[in-house]
Amino acid sequence: MRRTLSILVENRYGELARIVGLFSARGFNIESLTVAETLSTDVSRVTLVTRCDDSVMEQIVKKLSEQVRVLEATDLTGVKHVEREMALLSVKAATKAARERVLGLVSAFRAEVVDLSDDGIIVEVMGDWDRINSLIKLLAPIGIREIARTGTVAMARSPEAPRSVALKV
């Protein structure tokens, strides 16, 4: 099952490697990973998307919480939260017909054109994972040359929202 984890960690070298190591040591792939500072420059938020079952996730979240420099680890899956991701999609569009089809999809998805050349268009799209995947699916038959995705960032809808496992115990 696809899961989104949100981790607050002290902003220091080596901490990301420690977090990622908990996944790689178990042979789990990380689907996306974003890291950036929070309001405090001493603290970074890591948003990590992976696939695994409940009991493994519970174990990983506990292990994350036990890490010396991790302030909080939350499994957002099953909690009300928002997710956003941005993607740049380079689409082949050498003909007028192709360009029109691309531009139609761009406006339907409230995406933006960020680069236009004789034979292609670079589209910027934002949304949750599903939304970006749908646009990719629709553009694919026209011809996507390259994709760059930021990976998911996420936030619980209200700070009071119950968390499956959170806070350091």
Partner: peptide, 8 residues
Amino acid sequence: DLPGYRPD
């Protein structure tokens, strides 16, 4: 200074 480390 170990804000994330408070073993019970």
